[in-house]
């Protein structure tokens, strides 16, 4: 397994507050890696640091062997890192189609086969393509956020809480699609509070706690680890 994305001892601060206290994570080509943790553990901060919205105070980030920490966000996406941000962040007054075209901004214009691929994954978006992003339901917005990130033809896709606020049936559907995207060849780094669902599709997982990685293992091992079950699945401490 070749390492595609590597964070090495990454530290991020918001003013005086340390949000990440030395995070080391490796993501291999073709993997789905789950990044788990409670609210405020630093999951979103990790993704935002990878995509260049935040810059590490210490440590390094490598993508395909190239150092990328310090690059601005608009250059990072050009390297092949797509990011579906926390809270979906759909452009509310652009249509579904325009939102997808924004995803392809780095190419100048959206390519038809990319659009076809997104519409094949999310037929609902095809039905709603002329509707304003702001008028979509939560589930549709999530589909659009993932589809928009795919439009940049990412090598690695960063997904921040894709199941947040969605009905259980829809959550299952979104996770099935994430697996499908991965099978089509895209590496996925998945941030989730929904640990069971995330670990059920992931190959490996990391657990973040107050800015530090406290566990990392194969997803199947984490799924049965009593500490994980106690902390994230609401079971009594073993």
């Amino acid at each position: 397994m070749s390492v595609l994305l590597q964070l090495s001892d990454v530290q991020v601060r918001y003013g005086a507050i340390a949000a990440l206290k030395g995070v080391t994570v490796e993501i291999g080509a073709g993997e789905i890696v789950a990044l788990l943790g409670a609210n405020g553990a630093g999951k979103t901060t990790t993704l935002r640091t990878i995509s260049g919205q935040l810059h590490p105070h210490e440590g390094r980030i490598f993508f395909e062997g190239r150092r990328i920490d310090g690059l601005p966000a608009h250059e990072v996406v050009g390297l092949g890192i797509g990011h579906s941000p926390e809270g979906r962040r759909i452009f509310p007054r652009m249509s579904v189609l325009e939102n997808l075209q924004m995803g392809a901004y780095r190419f100048g214009r959206a390519r038809k086969d990319d659009l076809d691929r997104v519409f094949a994954l999310f037929p609902r978006l095809l039905e709603r393509r002329t509707q304003d992003g702001g008028t979509l339901s939560g589930g549709e917005q999530q589909m659009l956020a993932i589809g928009r990130a795919l439009m940049s033809r990412p090598t690695v896709l960063l997904l921040d809480e894709p199941s947040m606020g969605l009905a259980p049936l829809l959550v299952q559907q979104i996770f099935d699609i994430i697996r499908e995207i991965n099978e089509q060849g895209t590496t996925v780094l998945l941030v989730e509070q929904n640990a069971v669902q995330a670990l059920s599709i992931a190959h490996r997982g990391y657990v973040l706690e107050t800015g530090s990685i406290v566990m990392s293992d194969a997803a199947s091992s984490l799924l049965v680890d009593p500490r994980v079950r106690a902390a994230y699945l609401g079971e009594g401490a073993a």
Binding site: G52, Q53, P72, A73, P85, P92, M94, M102, R106
Partner: peptide
């Protein structure tokens, strides 16, 4: 509409 997200799109 959303400057941060525009940056993520490559703007």
């Amino acid at each position: 509409q959303d400057a941060d997200t525009a940056g993520l799109m490559g703007v």
